[in-house]
């Protein structure tokens, strides 16, 4: 019973919303445009730093959000400038390298005053002004089966904001992917030379997609940071790979794929850990080993998904017929 409660709790947690957001961003990159961005965690980390540092230094929330968005947009522009003309797998290597650079810089002692180096920025340093705005009571609140604190950290307030943001971004994805703009991006995903021959500036469209997806990633970073803290090492390569896994799980290029994927991913991670600790005796798999055990399964899931069901749960089976 506890396990089911844990799963339900995880299914709506701010982390889940943050990953759904990051995956929506990645959906703009990969699902719509076919860009292999392997550095989504870098965009998230920039968003976190941008918001947390601005607010810590006394800036208002709106300024923090703008700084976060601006950081991600500039990062996207710098990253896209040399790489969007290169073949897909080079973009993958450059984005992953750039994201790691952001992390190394963030945890560098040289920037200790700004980023707090490898310890990061404590939640109390930047969460205050956001939590002040909470319309919920400053205590535990139970709604249906869920109990969360009203305002602090993993709170109802953050849940409402996070999922509202998810809904808004879904709406945006839906509107844009069904527009002529989205049509050009899909064309690029299929064959950029064809789109070029039809008179569209492919480079500019790829850049737009990279920046939009990255900015959504930065928003995801803010939601994550407000639920936890800013910690550079939590935004390493594995985080990007998880986002990829959950996007492919839900279904790339579908509207609800990222959200479904995120809920399933985090829900089943809790489920696997819970079931494993129930069913496998402590002597075989102690609590310390649960985490790597379940993440091993994540890796295997990613492999199986790509091999056997690349269109994910919500994807169109027909699209598989021509994998050329």
């Amino acid at each position: 019973m506890d396990l089911i409660y844990d799963i339900l709790r995880e299914a709506i947690a701010p982390t889940t919303a943050a990953f759904a957001l990051a995956a929506i961003g990645l959906n703009f990159h990969f699902g719509l445009t076919g860009l292999l961005n392997m550095g989504q965690a870098g965009f998230m980390l920039l968003g976190m730093y941008g918001y947390a540092i601005t607010v810590r230094e006394g800036g208002p929330i709106w300024l923090g959000v703008i700084v976060a968005i601006a950081c991600a947009a500039v990062f996207g522009l710098i990253l896209g400038w040399p790489t969007l003309k290169l073949r897909g797998d080079y973009l993958a290597i450059v984005t992953i390298a750039a994201a790691e650079m952001i992390r190394y810089l963030g945890r560098s002692q040289n920037l200790n005053d700004l980023t707090g180096a490898s310890t990061g920025i404590r939640g109390n340093d930047f969460k205050g002004s956001f939590e002040m705005l909470s319309p919920f009571p400053d205590s535990q609140v139970t709604f249906l089966v869920w109990t969360f604190h009203g305002t602090r950290s993993t709170s109802w307030w953050l849940l409402v904001v996070g999922w509202t943001l998810v809904a808004l971004m879904l709406l945006m994805y839906w509107r844009l992917s069904k527009s002529p703009w989205g049509r050009v991006l899909k064309g690029i995903r299929e064959d950029e030379d064809a789109v070029r021959s039809l008179g569209k500036n492919v480079y500019s469209y790829k850049m737009q997609a990279l920046v939009i997806g990255g900015v959504i990633g930065a928003l995801a970073g803010i939601i994550w940071a407000l639920g936890a803290s800013v910690q550079p090492d939590s935004m390493g390569r594995p985080t990007t790979f998880w986002i990829w896994t959950l996007l492919l799980l839900g279904g790339a290029a579908t509207i609800f794929g990222p959200v479904l994927g995120s809920i399933l991913f985090w829900g089943s991670l809790v489920a696997v850990k819970g079931l494993a600790s129930l069913l496998i005796p402590e002597t075989l798999l102690n609590t310390q080993e649960l985490e790597p055990f379940s993440l091993t399964l994540v890796g295997i899931t990613l492999m199986c998904l790509v091999i056997f069901r690349p269109q994910g749960i919500l994807g169109d089976k027909k699209e598989l017929a021509f994998n050329d």
């Binding site: 797998d89 594995p238 890796g299």
Partner: peptide
């Protein structure tokens, strides 16, 4: 099966994730 390079690359990412955690699980952190 003629799986595209991009897909194979993502498979290798999955493998990397799986192996990394398998090693941690096996040998410890």
């Amino acid at each position: 099966r003629g799986v595209k390079m991009v897909q194979q690359m993502i498979v290798s990412i999955g493998l990397s994730l799986a192996l990394l955690n398998l090693l941690q699980w096996w040998i410890g952190p």
